[in-house]
Computed example of a mutant assay.
Amino acid sequence: MGEIIDNPRLREQRFVFSDRHDAGKQLGAFIRTLPAIRDPLVLAIPAGGVPVGKEVALALGAPLSLAIVRKIRIPGTTESGFGAVTWDGQVLINEELRDALGLSATDVDHAIAETRKNVGDRVTRFTGTRAVPEPAGKTVILTDDGLASGFTMLSAIQSVRHKNPARIIVAVPTASATSAGLVSRHVDQLVCLNIRSSRMFAVADAYAAWYDLDDREVLEELAGVP
């Protein structure tokens, strides 16, 4: 199990960040107080993780790229998922949830195929012809704007793990206590400023200003990034 590092002064608090950029700046400054990270590479999960990851990368003087992950949506819903597909085609299924939903093999295959296409479209839209930097031998820092269930982050971790990084660190502004414990078991270190144990946990509750970023805003965030 990886080490969990949080800020005790922010435990259980709500509305501790003004917005995602503020959260990323605070997170980057906090990481700089920890032992130096060798050869870091920041991979941000779009959309909300991009402004956070951008600020962390700036604080560490590290390159920034994307870890594009999409939920495999439960048929008939717009938000809930029973798995995820990553930028390199890896698929992670929540087997327990799939069984509980009674999804057929046809339902699952169709949902995966639809999600793969969506991921491919987003990779083209956000990265163009730029290749994702090679994680091998680097300290990969995966960022998002928070961890609710943690399942999307687990999918990203699985993909990075196959590429032989020296270390994997998850760095997020906020997380539920449950997801922090779950995700930390799969990485070398989890850094989270604001951990909350509320049963009604919502990532948005850590932010005074919260809204969903659209693709245009993600591209604007990435403009000018080397």
Rank of each mutant, 00 (worst) to 15 (best):
C192F: 07
P226E: 15
W87Y: 02
V16G: 10
G28T: 05
P51T: 10
T174D: 01
K117F: 12
D215P: 03
G150C: 04
N118W: 03
T152R: 00
G24Y: 03
V85R: 07
W210F: 07
Q189W: 08
G53Y: 10
I45R: 13
N194S: 13
L154T: 01
T139W: 06
I93W: 00
M1V: 11
R196Q: 14
D145E: 06
E55D: 14
V69C: 06
R14L: 14
A29C: 13
N118D: 15
R38H: 15
G137H: 01
R32F: 01
V119C: 09
D19L: 11
D121P: 00
A84C: 08
E96C: 04
R185F: 14
E217K: 08
N94T: 10
A105T: 09
P46Q: 14
E114I: 11
P165W: 06
G2D: 12
G61T: 10
N164V: 12
L41V: 01
S179T: 09
M1G: 09
M1T: 03
S149A: 09
H21I: 10
P63A: 08
L97C: 12
A47H: 15
W210I: 00
G181D: 12
G89E: 01
P135M: 09
T152G: 00
A166Q: 01
A180I: 01
Q189N: 01
R32I: 09
A209S: 15
T77C: 03
T143C: 12
R116Q: 14
S159F: 02
R20E: 02
A47K: 15
V50A: 12
T139N: 13
K71R: 09
I31A: 02
A36D: 15
P46W: 05
V16N: 11
S65I: 07
G224N: 04
T143L: 04
A180Y: 05
P135C: 03
F17P: 06
F17M: 06
A62P: 04
V16H: 04
T178R: 11
S179N: 06
V225P: 04
G102T: 12
I93N: 04
G49L: 00
G146M: 02
R20A: 08
L58T: 13
P51Q: 06
V187R: 03
S149I: 09
W87E: 09
L190M: 08
I157T: 03
V42E: 02
K117D: 14
T139G: 13
P40R: 02
D88I: 02
T115W: 10
R125E: 12
T115I: 07
L27F: 06
A148M: 09
K138F: 06
G2E: 00
R38I: 15
T106S: 15
H110T: 15
R116A: 11
L101I: 09
A29D: 15
G81Y: 00
L154K: 00
H110F: 15
P133Y: 08
V52L: 01
D188Y: 05
D215S: 07
T174M: 06
I31E: 05
A84V: 09
R199V: 15
D107R: 09
T106P: 10
S159P: 00
T152M: 08
Y207N: 01
F82C: 07
R125K: 11
S197N: 14
V108T: 04
D215M: 07
M1P: 06
P75K: 02
G89V: 01
E12S: 13
A105R: 13
M153E: 04
R130Q: 13
N118P: 00
G81V: 08
E134P: 05
V56G: 05
H186V: 12
